[in-house]
Simulated assay, not measured.
Amino acid sequence: MVDKAPSQDDSGDGPQGSSQRPFSSSKQPPSKKRRQSDLMVEMMSSMASNIGRIADALTGSNQSVCLDHLFEMVQKIPGFDDDLIIEACEFLSFDEKRAKMFLKLDERLRKLWLLKRLRSQNG
């Protein structure tokens, strides 16, 4: 019986060593580096998809307010005379955040909110 030389590995390849293994990827499982690389690509793809969905949601919420619709709603508020309608339209069209707030409120609260803002602006 012949003992193995200390320089040979215990992989079962015998005296030929690992230098004569074929490089075909179809016969051997992917290396650890390759699996990690694939995992990173998969994770990055997932992150990109999620970021895209977040961006789409933010873009949807940042759409401009339609001034025609806004002015229509102001004109429908009962008890507003022409001067108050003009003042309210100017106030709302100056800042998109104000316009969005106005649109989010129900009809009763729109009038109260708008009157309060116009009074504080004038006095």
Rank of each mutant, 00 (worst) to 15 (best):
D56C: 14
S25L: 11
M47V: 05
S37A: 13
E72G: 15
P78M: 05
E72I: 08
V41A: 07
P29T: 00
P22W: 09
F80E: 01
K33V: 10
R53S: 07
P30S: 02
G14H: 04
K33F: 12
L70Y: 06
A55C: 09
I77S: 02
V41C: 01
K32I: 01
S19D: 09
M44W: 03
F71I: 07
D10F: 14
D56L: 15
E42R: 11
A48L: 05
L67W: 08
V74D: 04
H69S: 15
L67G: 06
D82L: 09
S49E: 05
P29A: 05
H69G: 15
Q20W: 11
N62R: 11
S18G: 14
D82G: 05
A48Q: 08
S11P: 00
I77M: 12
D13V: 10
Q75F: 11
S49T: 04
I54A: 08
E42L: 10
F80R: 03
E72W: 12
S61T: 13
S61G: 08
S26D: 12
A55Y: 08
L58M: 14
S49R: 06
I54Q: 05
R35L: 08
I51N: 02
L70N: 05
I51K: 03
M40V: 09
I85M: 13
P29I: 00
L70W: 06
I77E: 04
R21F: 03
A55G: 06
D13G: 07
R35T: 04
S31K: 03
Q75R: 15
D81M: 12
A57W: 02
D38E: 13
P15I: 14
A88M: 00
R35S: 01
R53Y: 04
N50V: 02
H69I: 15
A48G: 08
S26T: 10
E90S: 06
R34S: 07
K76Y: 11
V65T: 07
E72K: 14
P29H: 00
D13N: 14
I86K: 15
E90K: 06
S64L: 10
G60C: 01
E87G: 06
F80A: 06
V41H: 04
S49P: 00
I77K: 01
C66G: 13
F91D: 00
K76W: 09
